[in-house]
């Protein structure tokens, strides 16, 4: 993929965001009108593909630089990238295990949760991913002012997401009788959202670090591995939610 100029990158970012938003709406519609699990899974996979390719630029892993100088920064950067993706692969197994547990325990039923609330927090996270992408693109073009702006927006939305899940969703679930200790359904709901929220919080810490260091001018358009790492990690959190959201809020029959 050739290096894009600023406006192309903007156009692409927006386009992907629109796709994702439409797919999320579609998901909501499919769940309430058709209820097909296969279709929901397919949509989630498409969303995942879009994020992984365009926002997380997974294609950058595909490098053929065996002959390059091992001590060059470019070579080390590619090694770092591989390390990060290996970490994400490993982390995927935690979330995969949680998803498997959810289906083992609940099958095609789901706990009584507020779907609108779910859609709202999902949208917040999605929007944060868009701004995260904008922040990274800004740094790629050495635009420090916009980098700070967009990173701050991502941070704010991420914080809103955590507050939404822990501060609004959890109490409302408890009010519905879904508590960690009353049933396995409650337990798995709190475990899944809790583990995800834990990752969001660590993501926020990364964001704080790159925001501070970015503001101090430590990154440049050539050298900003920390920004790239935080970005990819942040999108990864989004990807996890792409699967957890339907698994918790959309799929299956409601347990009374």
């Amino acid at each position: 993929m050739a290096h894009m100029n600023k406006s192309e990158a903007l156009r692409q970012g927006v386009l992907i965001f629109v796709f994702l938003a439409v797919l999320t709406a579609l998901e909501f519609f499919v769940a309430s009108a058709i209820g097909s699990v296969t279709l929901l899974a397919a949509i989630a996979l498409v969303k995942f593909g879009l994020v992984a390719y365009y926002y997380m630029h997974i294609y950058k892993l595909n490098l053929n630089d065996q002959d390059a100088d091992r001590r060059s920064d470019a070579y080390k950067l590619a090694t770092n990238r591989l390390g990060l993706w290996l970490f994400l692969l490993s982390d995927t197994f935690v979330f995969g295990g949680l998803a498997v547990s959810r289906f083992n325990l609940l099958g095609l039923t789901r706990p009584p949760l507020n779907p609108t609330l779910g859609l709202i927090v999902t949208s917040v996270l999605l929007l944060s991913s868009f701004f995260m992408n904008r922040a990274e693109v800004s740094m790629e073009h050495g635009d420090r002012k916009n980098f700070i702006l967009f990173t701050s927006l991502t941070l704010a939305l991420g914080l809103a997401f955590v507050v939404g899940v822990l501060g609004v969703e959890w109490p409302s679930a408890i009010a519905e009788g879904v508590t960690p200790s009353v049933s396995a359904a409650g337990a798995i709901f709190f475990m899944m959202t809790g583990m995800h929220a834990f990752h969001v919080v660590t993501g926020l810490v990364f964001l704080l670090i790159i925001l501070r260091n970015g503001a101090r001018g430590l990154y440049s358009s050539e050298k900003h591995w920390a920004v790239e790492a935080a970005t990819v990690y942040w999108h990864f959190i989004d990807v996890v939610w792409i699967f957890f959201y339907p698994a918790l809020y959309l799929i299956g029959k409601l347990i009374k």
């Binding site: 547990s101 325990l105 200790s181 009353v182 049933s183 396995a184 359904a185 409650g186 337990a187 798995i188």
Partner: peptide
């Protein structure tokens, strides 16, 4: 949290 507690629907 009753993941594995049959009394709570766990397995």
């Amino acid at each position: 949290m009753g993941f594995f507690d049959p009394a709570k629907g766990g397995n």
